[in-house]
């Protein structure tokens, strides 16, 4: 990242060429189709504020307490286990067993 001193501002002629080409590509239906292939969308987002109370006296709340309080051997169950990892002994991405001490 030390290239700053070597970079000179681009010339007007080069920029004109680039912008002209850009306008052409942007207008071309071929690019639009290509771009559609590369880009990915996400699902619509939800509103995060509401006035519900959901957890009640136990359910999710107490199971979280169990995870934190005990030296609980956690078995990961996420997609990261399917990703390649050169640094992992198994060759796949791995989370550690969850043995968090009480804060």
């Amino acid at each position: 990242m030390s290239q700053k001193t070597t970079n000179r501002p681009a010339s007007a002629a080069a920029l004109a060429l680039a912008l002209g080409a850009a306008l052409t590509v942007a207008a071309s239906p071929v690019l639009a189709a290509d771009a559609a292939k590369e880009k990915c969308y996400g699902v619509a987002m939800k509103g995060k504020n509401d006035c519900k109370a959901g957890a009640g006296t136990s359910c999710a709340g107490s199971s979280m307490r169990d995870h934190q309080g005990n030296a609980w051997a956690y078995v990961p169950a996420g997609t990261c286990e399917k990703t390649a990892s050169p640094t992992s002994p198994t060759g796949f991405g791995q989370l550690k067993e969850f043995k968090e001490k009480k804060a």
Binding site: D50, C51, K52, A53, G54, G56, T57, S58
Partner: peptide
């Protein structure tokens, strides 16, 4: 609402909107 119980078994209703 959702229905739970307090420590004496009386209903404890939760405003769950669910």
């Amino acid at each position: 609402f959702a229905c739970e119980a307090d420590s004496l078994g009386a209903p404890l209703l939760i405003d769950s909107h669910g």
